[in-house]
Design a protein around this nucleic acid. Structure first.
Lengths: 219, 219
DNA sequence: ATAAGTCTGTTGTATTTGCAACGATAGCGA
DNA sequence: TCGCTATCGTTGCAAATACAACAGACTTAT
């Protein structure tokens, strides 16, 4: 497990913690690791977990099958990313998605109770990890709230208005560059690309906005 | 501030902590309180905060104005509810919504740093509060993820399928009662009530589902 | 029992969307 | 330069949606 310490050093969870301290904390936190072959499930829908997980090798898919069997891929987890933090609390209830290894993968497990309850030996950086965990969760939370704000609008135009307003706020300017191309923006807002493209042009004709590729200006 | 201790005892943040311990922690956490008259802002969009807040009296609205001035009410905060936990971390960035007192209100402030970094005097229940905070955040997170899963579907039928599938999972049964009437469900899924009502009936005609008021059975 | 109010389903219409296809443009490497 | 690809706008059409209006079933207050 030691060989993954340099990698862990650069994760959000261990941000600001040195390699020596991480090494000490691995035993303090009683970290475990597991290997999953391609096609194996790391987590299954309905399962209850008590660990926060970090992928240290390979690639995972978060996916969901509905009652009638339609599958959709929610997100992709890459090396160094943390997952499970929203479902590790005791009363969390079951995980709602499957997590599948799409290639040979290694996952590290950290018991959430050992992270949250400060150890008696009081390793210096323990509280830093608790902070990091809190920060990661609250950041995740903010992004979800923001996205919900866009998606709760009824029409494509309203979604665009909400999104562009937010970007203008964020940049403190009515002129800004967004981090998406048209297809990505459409996926982000859950609308059809061509319909969105058309709506953008109509908004331009209505004198609400000017744009050039990913650069926008609100009027 | 002492008079609010019995109320705090029943909040999510202080769950499991006795009144005496809360009393001790108020000073340990250097809790502050503030009073807001009707129409006063508790938080304004663009502001940066470093406290977690609990409403101990009155009523607040979380609301949002877009670039063109359209206002929408996001949620209502009642007595005993916690807010601000998603924006209290140092690198959180600005709050994106306004929080307004819609009647005379009293809010208690808890410095997030003092909650997260365990105090040297090590009051016994401090780590319990950290746990509660984590649990509250992760629960909030799960609900947001779930709602996003419903809202990212394109059609009303797909949203209903996603929602009803989730409820069936949660109840471990294909038959269950939902906590919404038609209008509330439509608001929750961000669709038109009558269109949703029609779609539900078409799904029934297609043999996918049976229902009677708020009681559903998937087939 | 009556009246008022709530919840739900139904219908019709104008609007919006999803989808597929096509053309224009720009960037890039052979 | 030529072809290849990615991106973006545009169009036509079928499908889905929002919106308004209304009717029946049921609940509640008087």
């Amino acid at each position: 497990m030691k060989k993954y310490i340099p990698l862990l050093k650069n994760t959000l969870l261990f941000s600001g913690v040195g390699e020596d301290e991480i090494s000490a904390m691995l035993s303090c936190l009683q970290a475990r690791s597991g290997t999953y072959g391609k096609g194996e499930y790391v987590l299954r829908q309905g399962e209850h977990i008590g660990d926060i997980m970090v992928l240290v090798s390979g690639k995972l898919h978060v996916q969901c099958d509905d009652y009638w069997g339609n599958r959709s891929i929610i997100s992709v987890i890459g090396v160094g990313e943390m997952f499970g933090e929203s479902y590790a609390a005791p009363e969390s209830g079951a995980v709602v998605n499957d997590v599948l290894a799409v290639e040979e993968s290694v996952v590290m497990f950290f018991d959430i109770k050992r992270i949250i309850t400060v150890c008696s030996s009081a390793c210096r950086f323990h509280s830093l990890v608790v902070q990091n965990l809190f920060y990661a969760l609250s950041e995740h939370n903010r992004k979800l709230i923001q996205k919900l704000g866009f998606m709760s609008r009824r029409t494509t135009r309203e979604k665009l208005i909400a999104y562009l307003s937010e970007e203008a706020k964020r940049h403190n300017s009515s002129e800004f560059t967004i981090p998406f191309n048209r297809q990505q923006l459409a996926d982000y807002l859950s609308v059809d690309r061509s319909a969105m493209s058309g709506e953008l042009c109509r908004m331009r004709d209505d004198g609400m906005v000017e744009f050039e590729r990913s650069r926008f200006r609100l009027l």
